[in-house]
């Protein structure tokens, strides 16, 4: 554990809590991609199956359980509790175009051809693209509420901090995980355009982020 890793995890947690509270308090999931949230729930489910097979630390176990619970609670709010506020027409990204290649790649490029290992690899690859339906939705509607952009900012910051964590671990421990690092770099790149808009539009202005 290093400071980048810890801050990264905290940003990830903050992002998930921001989204959950936004939907819970406003009783609306307008502007939120339910598909991205289902993908994230799938990411956590397939990655954290090792909760049943190996114990790493109390921190690790607690964080995994919290992420899983919040991910499913968010999906529940979007698709069941506040379903009437869900913009299904704008959330039109075809997730099969993500799931099929990601599933195929996880069978081809993994550390061991074992069920848990393939599911872990699948979760790593899927996480790198899971935000695309949300970014697609913002591009399609041309706007996002500022609270939604704060959610995306913390999610992107979490990714950037994990990159710093890997640089740190490489230099201090000689640790290098190519699947996680390559996917992590790809994932972080998706946020770059958003970061630019966030700093130039959201933080300088107020209210919604509108696309040029």
């Amino acid at each position: 554990m290093n400071i980048f890793r810890l801050l990264g995890d905290m940003c990830h947690l903050v992002a998930i809590i921001i989204l959950f509270l936004k939907i819970w308090r406003s009783k609306s999931c307008a502007g939120i991609s339910g598909k991205s949230q289902v993908l994230f729930a799938l990411v956590f489910t397939t990655r954290y199956l090792d909760l049943f097979t190996s114990f790493i630390s109390v921190y690790n176990t607690v964080m995994k359980v919290v992420f899983l619970v919040l991910a499913y609670a968010t999906v529940y709010l979007i698709y069941l509790r506040f379903r009437s506020t869900y913009n299904s027409e704008s959330d039109s990204f075809r997730v099969e175009f993500l799931l099929v290649p990601v599933a195929g790649l996880s069978f081809l490029e993994n550390y061991a051809f074992a069920p848990l290992e393939i599911l872990w690899t699948f979760s790593i690859y899927l996480e790198s693209v899971a935000i695309l339906p949300q970014l697609f939705m913002i591009t399609k509607t041309g706007e996002a509420e500022s609270i939604t952009t704060h959610y995306l900012f913390f999610l992107g910051l979490y990714r950037a901090l994990y990159l710093a964590n890997w640089v740190w671990r490489y230099h201090t421990e000689g640790f290098f995980d190519q699947i996680a690092v390559v996917s992590g770099v790809v994932q972080t790149i998706f946020y770059c355009d958003f970061f630019y808009l966030y700093f130039t539009k959201v933080l300088r202005g107020s209210g919604k982020m509108t696309l040029p």
Partner: peptide, 10 residues
């Protein structure tokens, strides 16, 4: 380090 070591990350 083996790939298993990455599993301590979330």
């Amino acid at each position: 380090l083996s790939p298993k070591d990455v599993k301590d990350e979330l």
